[in-house]
Design a protein around this nucleic acid. Sequence first.
DNA 1: TTATTACTTCGATAGTTATAAAACTAATGA
DNA 2: TCATTAGTTTTATAACTATCGAAGTAATAA
Lengths: 96, 96
Amino acid sequence: MTIEEQSKDEILSEIFKALSEPNRLKMIRTLNESDKEITCGEMSEILKLSLSTVSYHAKTLREMGLTNTRKEAQTKYLSVNRQTFKKYLPGFLDSL
Amino acid sequence: MTIEEQSKDEILSEIFKALSEPNRLKMIRTLNESDKEITCGEMSEILKLSLSTVSYHAKTLREMGLTNTRKEAQTKYLSVNRQTFKKYLPGFLDSL
DNA sequence: TTATTACTTCGATAGTTATAAAACTAATGA
DNA sequence: TCATTAGTTTTATAACTATCGAAGTAATAA
């Protein structure tokens, strides 16, 4: 295994850890299937989770580069970051 | 989300959990890159982990259907289960 | 300024997990 | 039978994580 592969394993396993939590995977599926951005409050209603829990998961997904965040006034709009998936899990979003 | 997708999410998140542990991901990479089966003892040397820890991880991977196990006398030979990857993460092994 | 909205962070808790040593099991061989 | 080999399970521990309520922050509106 090369040095590059070692760090790729680390990045990949962190991405997998982010996706291993069922509610986070649901968030990705929801964002992937949506034709528009979704706010944290909307996600809270869709997943029947408290806003603080959604915020916690959203932070994890954002920090792993799996989602984009656009802030407009107090509202945060979430969307899936297709580039990251394309780079590390090509084809995954299409198979989801 | 349909009922089928719900259970697919659960299976997928369990697969991701299995792959989110760096040593298990290394085991999959090692098996994927090998042209022959690998024993638990060999894996223990390759990953510098105790045999009990390798056995513990091997069990997780086997139970998720990510590896095959072939027993010959006392020895267990591990290999990657390509069908499971093809079904749930098509293209992943090639991109690994 | 005060209130409201939308989200984040803190704090506490309950549950999960990775690790290895020790004990155990099963197969082979002397 | 006894010893060796290969792997599993048990046990204990230390570390991590998901959850939510409460408190905090920042932007807007009255």
